[in-house]
């Protein structure tokens, strides 16, 4: 059989892989190099090597430390809540109840909304007094006029909620296909043994989707800071840096303050940390799988 297979010439694969390596590795090398230099965009010829100076600046930069903390919060909290909400939604959608079937087709919508549009949509929804949230509150007889984006804590919570809004559909979809792959026989056996539906969920569904949740968590951790456009539109990183993660701070440093070498250092530190933690988690997950 192997002899009559199409002969794969590397000519098929090389252009794509070559383009990919060129378009990713060269820029990354350039950013790393830039982070070790003193670079002024107006006088690029005066660039000189300054070693770890840009990295040393982190220690005395309160805004950097704040952004690192915000990054941590904006990765961990949304991912955990996306997993919990996604699991709750997946279990509900697995039921295929009459009247909720359309949900199975439509619930993915937020995950493909352009992030900038999502930012405007939520900004409209949260306008104090006249937005959609105030409308919903008025349906329940409440008078809700608070400016959620105006104070530090509520702005951060708002960004987390929007982040969950973007992420829950994909998480629910992946967990739903994981749930759908559990054989019905297991539930039937549990039912014969007198287990209620809730017990079956707790003792069968949740343990069996846990391994999938680990992989989904890593995947989402890499995706979740893609809400940069939402922050750009919704809060602009404010108030007072409360919703300014490192990628947002690096963006401002590069394109508003034109401090490109420092921005490069922030991005290198940010990327190394987030990719490093994710790859480490993947290796842990696959190690436990092999061990089983």
């Amino acid at each position: 059989m192997a002899s009559s297979r199409p002969k794969v010439s590397s000519a098929l694969i090389t252009p794509a892989i070559g383009f990919l390596c060129l378009a990713t590795l060269v820029p990354i090398a350039a950013v790393v190099a830039l982070s070790f230099g003193d670079f002024n965009i107006a006088f690029p010829e005066k660039t000189r090597f300054i070693g770890l100076y840009n990295y040393a600046r982190f220690l005395s930069d309160g805004r950097f430390i704040n952004a690192a903390l915000v990054t941590f919060i904006l990765v961990v909290v949304p991912v955990v809540l996306q997993l919990l909400c996604g699991l709750a939604l997946a279990i509900a959608l697995k039921e295929k109840l009459v009247g909720t079937r359309w949900m199975r087709a439509a619930f993915l919508l937020p995950s493909v909304v352009p992030p900038a549009v999502g930012g405007i949509v939520w900004k409209l929804f949260l306008i104090p007094g006249v937005g959609g949230l105030s409308y919903l509150a008025s349906l329940f007889g409440h008078n809700f006029e608070a400016d959620l984006l105006g104070s530090k804590t509520s702005a951060l919570i708002s960004v987390i909620i929007v982040s969950i809004w973007f992420g829950v559909p994909i998480v629910a979809l992946l967990l739903l296909s994981s749930l759908d792959s559990i054989p019905d026989e297991i539930y039937e056996a549990a039912n014969l043994d007198g287990a209620s539906w809730a017990q079956a969920q707790w003792h069968i569904s949740i343990p069996l989707v846990l391994p999938a949740m680990g992989a989904v968590a890593v995947f989402q951790a890499l995706e979740v800071l893609g809400i940069f456009p939402v922050i750009f539109v919704l809060t602009g990183g404010g108030p007072a840096g409360a919703t300014e993660p490192l990628n947002f701070y690096a963006f401002l440093t590069a394109f508003t303050y034109l401090d490109l070498d420092y921005s490069a250092a922030i991005l290198v530190a940010f990327t190394t940390t987030i990719v490093g933690v994710c790859f480490w988690s993947i290796s842990q997950i696959s190690a436990t799988r092999v061990g089983r």
């Binding site: 909400c85 709750a88 939604l89 279990i91 509900a92 959608l93 039921e95 109840l97 009247g99 909720t100 949900m103 439509a106 619930f107 919508l109 937020p110 909304v113 405007i120 949509v121 939520w122 409209l124 929804f125 937005g131 959609g132 409308y135 919903l136 809004w165 829950v168 559909p169 019905d184 539930y187 039937e188 039912n191 209620s196 539906w197 809730a198 079956a200």
Partner: peptide, 30 residues
């Protein structure tokens, strides 16, 4: 499998809550 009441209540409540959360901002924009 037995169709107990709790299961259906859970299904409807959670679906309704997420439908409200996921779609109301978009419908408000519309």
């Amino acid at each position: 499998m037995r169709r107990d009441l709790g299961r259906r209540i859970y299904g409807y409540l959670v679906s309704a809550a997420f439908a409200l959360f996921l779609f109301s901002p978009i419908l408000w924009t519309l």
